[in-house]
Each structure stands twice: as structure tokens, then as C-alpha cells.
Nucleic acid binder design. Structure first.
Lengths: 190, 190
DNA sequence: ATACTTACTTACTAATAAGTAAATAATATT
DNA sequence: AATATTATTTACTTATTAGTAAGTAAGTAT
């Protein structure tokens, strides 16, 4: 098992992930990737025969990432508000990367996605929403935060604020996102 | 001035608008439009020389629509909560049309949009956010609704909930949107 | 009736897309 | 050293895209 194989494939994955979040599934091509890596188009096809394969791997990769984050948060001794801030920080970082969250990206392109990938997107979305709901529920049980909705609903409210907040920041600027972030955290503190 | 001109151009605009909200700017072509109208590709170019021209007209069209809505709401005697519900209903309707809101659609594709259109998108977004903020501010002044954030921030919170809620509904289903909508309205009633 | 305008169609072009087959270079395995 | 295996290039194909140029049919204006 050579080192180079993994390197190039990983780099393709990484660039694909960035492009997906920056311009969306329909606006990037294998040529965009190959040019960045100074390799030929066909080399990208060697690692990911079809664009669908690449997309599937990107989504799988995010599922793994979020599972790790879930474990990390569970084993941390962060206060609930700070756990939610971890999510808010991730979304704030997307703005600086000229990106939006993958879920938002694939949701916008949903009706043009290969069927097999849609299922993975559903899994990823449920994973993320479930995580946030769990953090919220535990935080409320521990008396650290306050909200009157069901935990799942509150997770929906927070994540939609963040996801669309990042999208909106492209149009009206980052300060609108910061207003959202601040209001969000304040609400939890009651 | 013939009737047919207006008809075809209007239909192109309407189909373009639907496609933009369904699959996004980069995923539809003039061929998609011409096939639906049983005309040739070049006929679409006759009415809208470039895709940028079409996109610009779509955005302008939404600006007009929202200006009319603003007037309609100002002259109505709807309660504030019902005015906000008008927005929520519009977004709920998008789900049934397999669409997302234009602002979300163009935000996702923002870095692939022609420069000239970006400015129009900014205007549209400010128009919508301004409208909602105004409704909220007046509602609070009249003692009809309650919120502690600034009106602009509350408008951001509500509109991001709705916009991303519609996107999320593609993945997890419409009931998540309905949870958001209900929670949103409940919050205003305090 | 003639000229002009409008709304198209036919028939292209140039560029880019995704994807493939075959040859070749580089790296491991035995 | 010989042999696989892996990674990549070269050279395509097929399809689609946005866009254009030239022609035409029908209506409008003078």
C-alpha cells in the first residue's frame, strides 16, 4: 500500500468537499479538481470513477466527522452553551471559507442528486439534528439552559438559523450571522 | 404590440423562476425551458439573449412581487401574527412546489452568479428582511407580539428558520417545517 | 403595396462536461 | 530481477451547454 495513493485520493476528497460547499454539486467539475492538483482529468476518474462516487464519499466523510464530534462532545466537560457554541463556531468558520454547510448545499441541489446519495444525506441530517437535540435535552435536564419547545424542534430552530445564516451572510455580510449567533445563545440562557 | 410576445416571454420567465427555485441556477438550461414551451432554443435567446438576462429579470420580478406584498400588508387589517403567517404560508407552499425560496437558491449559487445580478439579490434580500422587520416592529409597538431582540435580528431569526426549514423539508420531510412554523408563531405570542 | 418589426426556426459554433480505453510510469511483492 | 499492482497520462467519445448568424413567416405601420 503506497503513500501516494492515499494522498491523492484524500486530496481529491478534500477539494471536492470544498467545492461542494462553495459552489454546489452542479457547479464544479473534475477539471476543477484536476487543475488544482496538477494532474489530468482521468486521474480523478481513477480514484472516483463517477462524480456520484465522489459525492457519496464526501457525504460519508461528513457522517464520520460528525460521529467523531458527537463522541468528542459527549466526553467533554463543556457547558451546554459552549457545546452549542461549537456548532455556531463551525458555521461561522464556513463564512470565512466562502462556504455554506453541506446539508444546505445538497438540499439546494437535492432534485438533481443521484438517488443513492439522497439516502446518505438523510442519514447525515438526522445524525446532526439528533446530536444537537441530545445536547439540548441534556442541558435542559441539567438545568443549564432553558427552552420550551421539544428538543427536536429546538434543534431544528437553531440549526436552520445557523444554516440559513451562513447562506445569508454571502448576501448581506457576516454581521447578520453574528447577530443570529448572539441571539441564539442568549435565548438559551433564558 | 402583439399579445403573443408578452405571452412567450412571460412563460419563459415563469418557467425560469420555477426552475431556479427547484434545481438552482447552474442546473437548468435554456433547453429545459424551450422543451416545456415547445419552441426552439434560439427562441428563448430571442427573448433573453443570455442566461444572465433571464436571471436578472427573475430577480427583478421578485423585487416587484415583494413590493406589492409590502403594500398589501401595509393596507391590510391583518393582525401581526397573521402577517407573519402570510410569510410562513408562502414558504410552506414552496415545499409543495418542490422549491426553495429564491434567496436561498441564489445564496447557494452565489459565487457562480454574474456580478451584476449579485447587486439585485442584495436589494431583494434587504427588501424582504426590511419588510419583516417593519411588521415585527409595528406589531411590538402595538402590543400584539413580543420579542426581546432588535426587530432586524428577529427578522433574521424568523426568515432563516423559514428558508432553511424549506430546504430541510426536502431531506427530512414537511413535518419538520411545520414544527418550525408552529414554534415560530408561538414564540411571538410569548 | 411596401417597408419594417416581431417572433420565431434552422443550422451552426466553441466550450465544457462526464466518462472510457489503452498505453505507460512508478511502486511493491515475490 | 521478474512480476504484479497501483497510479497516472494520452487520446478519445458522447452529450450538453450557452450563444449566434441567417433566414422566414406573420403581423403592423406608412
Amino acid at each position: 500500500m503506497s503513500a501516494k495513493t492515499t494522498d491523492t485520493k484524500q486530496e481529491i476528497l478534500s477539494i471536492g468537499r470544498d467545492l461542494l460547499k462553495k459552489v454546489g454539486y452542479n457547479a464544479f467539475s473534475y477539471s476543477d479538481i484536476s487543475k488544482q492538483l496538477n494532474i489530468k482529468n482521468a486521474a480523478v476518474h481513477y480514484h472516483y470513477p463517477t462524480k456520484e462516487d465522489l459525492l457519496a464519499d464526501i457525504v460519508n466523510n461528513y457522517i464520520e466527522d460528525y460521529k467523531k464530534l458527537e463522541l468528542g462532545l459527549a466526553n467533554s466537560n463543556l457547558k451546554t452553551v459552549d457545546k452549542i457554541s461549537v456548532f455556531a463556531d463551525r458555521y461561522a468558520h464556513l463564512i470565512d471559507m466562502e462556504s455554506i454547510c453541506i446539508i444546505g448545499s445538497v438540499a439546494s441541489d437535492f432534485y438533481t442528486l443521484p438517488e443513492a446519495v439522497k439516502d446518505k444525506v438523510v442519514s447525515l441530517t438526522n445524525l446532526v439534528l439528533g446530536m444537537v437535540a441530545k445536547v439540548l435535552e441534556k442541558g435542559r435536564a441539567d438545568g443549564e439552559i432553558f427552552f420550551k419547545e421539544e428538543a427536536h424542534t429546538k434543534a431544528l430552530l437553531i440549526m436552520t438559523n445557523l444554516a440559513a445564516g451562513v447562506q445569508l451572510a454571502r448576501i448581506t455580510g457576516k454581521k447578520d450571522f453574528e447577530s443570529i449567533r448572539t441571539a441564539l445563545i442568549d435565548q438559551l440562557k433564558k
